[in-house]
Write a protein that binds this DNA or RNA. Sequence first.
DNA 1: CGACGCCTTGACTAATCTCAAGGGTGGTGG
DNA 2: CCACCACCCTTGAGATTAGTCAAGGCGTCG
Lengths: 252, 252
Amino acid sequence: MPPADPHSNPLVRKLDNFARLSFEERRILHHAATERVRRIGARESLVHEGGKPPDISLLLSGWACRYKMLSDGRRQILAFLIPGDLFEQNGHVLREMDHSIGTLTPVEVGEIARPRFDEVLSERPRIAQGLLWDTLVGAAIQREWTVNLGRRDAPERVGHLLCELFVRLQSVGLTLGNRCDLPLTQNELADATGMSTVHVNRTIQDLRAANLIILREKTLTIPDMDTLKRATRFSPTYLHLQRVGGHLDASD
Amino acid sequence: MPPADPHSNPLVRKLDNFARLSFEERRILHHAATERVRRIGARESLVHEGGKPPDISLLLSGWACRYKMLSDGRRQILAFLIPGDLFEQNGHVLREMDHSIGTLTPVEVGEIARPRFDEVLSERPRIAQGLLWDTLVGAAIQREWTVNLGRRDAPERVGHLLCELFVRLQSVGLTLGNRCDLPLTQNELADATGMSTVHVNRTIQDLRAANLIILREKTLTIPDMDTLKRATRFSPTYLHLQRVGGHLDASD
DNA sequence: CGACGCCTTGACTAATCTCAAGGGTGGTGG
DNA sequence: CCACCACCCTTGAGATTAGTCAAGGCGTCG
């Protein structure tokens, strides 16, 4: 059951990092996103490369990822989807998916039909701006992953990714102090960072030994965020969380 | 001097790969993009990380790139911009640039003021759709680079990039048979593929020895595209060039 | 009680980087 | 006009990083 309270809707929370929505806007957005909710188990396929793009979908709970398989079985994870992430917002423009999307944990996905979505956007420009901001941040994250894979060494790469995930989870209220859930296997981290599973394992052990992270039982603890940021050259600028649309804030 | 004929405008040509524009739309788009043209030399900065996003800009001729520097001087090239590429279409939404843009060759850049741009979009939905398509293709390219850096070995990586550039150049009419200009140094290829310059050099020699590419004096020749595609596991699907908006074609 | 997935370790191999140096070319200033 | 410099491409040798293969422990779930 999706939460009844708009304020606990992770997309609503995320957009607060851009500009404050009005009470009415929160209600509308939450309602549209929870009218039709699918519950899906872990490690299932949501969208298949080559297939038709799905309806606009919002991850309400759980984790998923975009990924691409090569013909010989190599997999690259392109992005992690966490609660509050909208996917295929503009899917209807393309004929077919160029990558796949699959769940990592059990998830709840809210599906919004195109006409309903367009209606919300045209009636609520602040929401439209917020979702545009979200799309741009998504592109910035993809660029940062390019940097990560291309120019950072193993400890930086893994640590940087963990930093990013922590900050993103924080922006939707899914952290508790310096801790958060991290339901990823080392194999998934490897496919996201372009490394082998064995090397991820050794790298994590190094990060642990340097007391940069504590990671066990699917929980990540960051003892000292500043130190980890410095060690991994993480600068959160690219996440554009500084309420860049603050001038659009609703007044109610 | 920008070309006077809309049909030779590289953006107009590119959008033809999505849906056919009307005569009037071509004229409007070309006109808006060439009202104010800046000419800039090679290896100059167009936009600086941390600075304010620029006006909407269209690369009319020459090459540029998006890139990011790390604090110790490592550079990652995030994207190559070729004629017809629009950049910072939605820059106004973000407060500051999270990466830089610089020229690689001398370029001509058309700048379009935001109000003028919005006017064109709202009056010409087919252009708006085309530019949205272009943005989505840009995101798909960024994802493909993620795959390239994360999961392909050196020869695949370089060859795949060359395939992509060739096909993109083709889509704006900048190839001649199986040849195209490729004004990149091996150092720039290295920063794009996440490799060292030395290794790029050796990899190119391997590709040459296998007769997959001919690359000299800034000209790339691909003797057999099918073989190169197979060797580098290149599938052009992600470029979405199959006229996916064909149902929107103008009738004049 | 297996079977399986996940994390871990060791030993070995392969890919890639770094450092160093030389040749070619084009542009610039004396 | 020529010397010089900067940049680019190339090559070799050695160091380093990361991958592969193989195996064992541990917990979970049917």
